[in-house]
Design a protein around this nucleic acid. Structure first.
Lengths: 261, 261
DNA sequence: GCCGAACATTAACTTAGGTTATCACAGTCG
DNA sequence: CGACTGTGATAACCTAAGTTAATGTTCGGC
């Protein structure tokens, strides 16, 4: 399966520049790709993975179940994310990864990754950097869950979601694909579905977003960012300041979104 | 400043075995150590660090401030933790690190760490592993904040705190030094001080813990672990199963704690 | 032994968010 | 085509946790 311009490359390039040689090395990382439907597990808690994975398209998430059966999503995995680096060094998965939307996943054997660490320090640096980047996102989620209201949390998650997709060029003007149910938003924000719904109504009422048919449209970026206290800094190089989706606030002018109507 | 048996060594050894040679390399990492009082910043959000740091003794935490002035602690840093690995690859600190108790911090220049990556892949692996380990803890905190009640959260934090200190041999029977105020517990668990106090009273009432004069004593490990849904798995190799503090449940018998009276 | 500062504790009251339940709607499977 | 299922939207009600404020308690400094 050919996937044209690889989203991983787009992302890693945003974090660190590569030579032609290194880019070839990067694209040769994986040999096997897998297609998965929505709501399927990629790796499960307790597994002993022998490969790392890379999301090529779709949407996935890390999640854990509590002893009393509640679910908490700890991270979204967007195209370009290498999402099992920890399996390389830590033995047993302490959480699961599952798809949200139908997805394509590339498998990278551990040996390949280890060999590359030797062959190209720059590439291995990039992979390492990727995992530090993810840790920064984890920290931000802790802040989100610990110190923000429902309304703020959801606004924040939406900003981050948009920003991360923008990093890999997967936005369409001020819109992103949003293949999530409200239950999944609830599991990501530590809220109940009902209250997620209430808060989304509020965000709509403020004219900050439109959300329908699997598409999130940010009508007022700076308003949403303010509502969610979103400052893109933790997303590092990818987003210099407060990450406006376009050049200015009234940005839709020159760009066809083609589906926001 | 000589620090006897280095807690970092104890911890890294628990994660990965080293040769004599490598252990020498590890202890030569730092040249400069700094002493800090309680409640002092080590690095601040926005800083561009040139060294990584290693906590030799004391207690510190990562924290972030929200736009409206609330504080969230995102991680505790216990002796043996290297806590600025991200500064090696990410440019600007997106959060701060501050002490809780008086602490000794060793500074490791970035160049040293980079050079070591070349000299000893095993050592650099260990450092990398350390950061993946931390990410696992971040994930667990997300679950804690998102899906557990106040009572459960605090119980969980206490279990983790004990377990991580046990990893570096800094427990005393069923007791650990607990130099935290209730405000700090609140900032770590995303609660208000008042409610933290209420929940601690409840934990005391259940006979699970004693907490006074800077010492936390776990009177009933399995009870506390159950209350906090604590399963040490995410702490990896260090804790095989559910991490009982001693061999069994009634473990205090043969071991003098010397301060729990 | 007194003073002030920082913490811990408790009570009274408020509120954000959880729970339960119902209805509407769209997709899909027989 | 109707039954079923998953999802979204609301309403009514309830509770865990927040807020404010007052009262102890401990401890270092003098």
């Amino acid at each position: 399966m050919l996937v044209g311009e690889n989203p991983m490359l787009r992302k890693l390039r945003a974090l660190e520049p590569f030579s032609e040689e290194e880019q070839r090395l990067l694209t040769s990382l994986y040999t096997r790709t897998v297609h998965l439907g929505p709501r399927q597990d990629v790796v499960r808690e307790g597994d002993r993975a022998r490969e790392c994975s890379l999301l090529l398209s779709g949407l996935a998430c890390r999640y854990a179940m509590t002893a009393d059966g509640k679910r908490q999503i700890t991270a979204f995995i967007v195209p370009g994310d290498i999402f099992d680096i920890q399996s390389l060094l830590l033995e047993v998965m302490d959480h699961s990864v599952g798809t949200i939307a139908p997805s394509t996943v590339a498998m990278i054997p551990h040996e390949t990754l280890i060999q590359i660490s030797n062959d190209s320090p720059r590439v291995s640096r990039a992979v390492w950097k990727e995992s530090l980047f993810e840790a920064a996102v984890f920290r931000e989620w802790i802040v989100n869950l610990g110190r923000r209201s429902a309304y703020q949390r959801i606004a924040h998650v939406m900003c981050e979601f948009y920003a991360r997709h923008k990093l890999v060029d997967l936005v369409d003007g001020d819109s992103v694909a949003w293949p999530m149910t409200q239950t999944e938003i609830a599991d990501a924000t530590g809220l109940s579905v009902v209250h997620v719904n209430r808060s989304i109504q509020a965000l709509r009422g403020e004219g900050l977003i439109r959300l329908a048919a699997g598409v999130l449209t940010i009508q007022n970026w700076s308003g949403l960012a303010e509502a969610g206290q979103f400052e893109g800094r933790y997303l590092q190089g990818g987003f210099p300041k407060s990450a406006p989706p376009l050049s200015g606030e009234r940005g839709t002018d020159g760009i066809r979104t083609g589906r926001t109507g």
